[in-house]
Write a protein that binds this DNA or RNA. Structure first.
Lengths: 233, 233
DNA sequence: CGTGTAGTTGAGATGCGTCAATAGTTGTGG
DNA sequence: CCACAACTATTGACGCATCTCAACTACACG
């Protein structure tokens, strides 16, 4: 259901105007022609590990990934980091309700994102009506991801988590049997609630069992997708 | 931000009509006067552990809890159960995109819920526009919960999980230092990704440290809220 | 070629799960 | 009101999966 509402998910961003962001990063005006309609936003570039916004920052914009990978995460009092999600090109992030962001967003690798200012949306009341459906679709997508992530973290073994992670990446990426990891082992560990050592060991074990192979540390070849899915159960 | 959109969250349900549900459960027509406007839905009663809908069921309705507590959960192939969320009175659940529900919903204890049929919303195009904002607010609330649950499950010790769970309940419930648990130990365990034994032991330890007391198995008195929050860190 | 960072591997410690026994609670029927 | 059964919760002993600490390797970059 909700398909009728999803009709609103066609692009309404022709009504969006880029607002100056006053940022210290390289920025340029932008009009994304790949969308159905002109999308006006502010393109920003970030180097690897650059902070896009911080936990508690003013919720002025939401973002879309153009290239690279973004992580949204939370830093705990003991210094540990938990990664909420990885965002691939085309995906929306920083889409929070409330006055401030509840997570931090950082560039996993060099990446480009578009920022859409909320303020530009608030002026004429009617626009909100039409945008609400679009926003609803974004919220539901993020909701589904968050729920699946919860299920991933609850009472599963290290192998199950790592296998599920690889399956998730394979499904989202273009090619389903060669996975180029944008993220470091520490990122994977913080996403799965494991340590880097366990992630590394688990990947080595999967390679030993010929389920995957690791030509380089950042490239995973899925040799037996069926087995991988079975393991992630 | 998004406050402008939240203006749509005032009740539009006067436009909603109750549709016959053809259910084997006790049902009666309903009009919730506590809402701003007449809300027409189908009231359903469920006994403890009764199934409200199952994973994969046709996504015909979403629901609001009137009384009692509802759990949304997933059953894994190994028979284990993971609880995605508990829903208290006033909260919305079963709010899925897609043609079918991706989780099961069950009554934790005897409870009453209202079912709102999607079909009743689809007829006149204009209504969708106005409801979209309301739905967006529901989606964002569920999203926030799901994200917090993910953070709860990732690399935290048993004590941290249990303490965080108690804090969450205390915050959501009316009284913040007496918590009446509607759910069994198994439910708590499945929500936190622990075993009943570990949950039980952890509660006992917290009582031993005088942070809480357990007059009965289902009642928790928070003696030291500050300590509890610190532990959940 | 040297240095620094990222990743792998090993050995030992430990927190939580598993299995098992006990205690408490609820409901039913005499 | 008590006796009994059935279920729920607590507690204990032990094993194992994962964490921790540490050494080593591989690779990138000046």
């Amino acid at each position: 259901m909700l398909t009728s509402l999803s009709n609103f998910a066609d692009d309404r961003f022709s009504t969006l105007k880029a607002a100056p962001l006053g940022m210290h990063r390289t920025a340029q005006s932008f009009s994304d022609r790949r969308e159905s309609g002109a999308v006006h936003g502010q393109v920003l570039h970030f180097a690897a590990d650059g902070e896009i916004y911080g936990d508690g920052d003013d919720n002025a914009s939401f973002y879309k990934v153009l290239s690279g990978v973004v992580r949204t995460c939370k830093f705990r009092s003991d210094g540990r980091r938990q990664i909420d999600a990885f965002h691939l090109p085309g995906e929306i992030f920083g889409f929070d309700a409330g006055a401030s962001h509840r997570l931090s967003a950082e560039a996993v690798c060099d990446c480009a994102v578009v920022a859409y200012r909320w303020r530009a949306l608030e002026a004429p009341g009617e626009i909100d009506d039409r945008l609400a459906g679009q926003f609803f679709a974004y919220a539901m997508q993020n909701l589904q991801r968050a729920q699946e992530h919860s299920l991933l973290l609850g009472r599963r073994s290290a192998v199950q988590k790592v296998a599920a992670f690889l399956v998730e990446l394979a499904d989202r990426a273009a090619c389903d049997h060669i996975i180029d990891l944008a993220m470091a082992r520490q990122d994977i560990a913080d996403y799965l609630g494991l340590t880097i050592e366990t992630v590394s060991r688990t990947l080595s074990n999967l390679e030993r069992e010929a389920v995957i192979s690791l030509p380089t540390a950042r490239r995973v070849c899925v040799n037996n997708a069926q087995a991988l899915r079975r393991i992630s159960s």
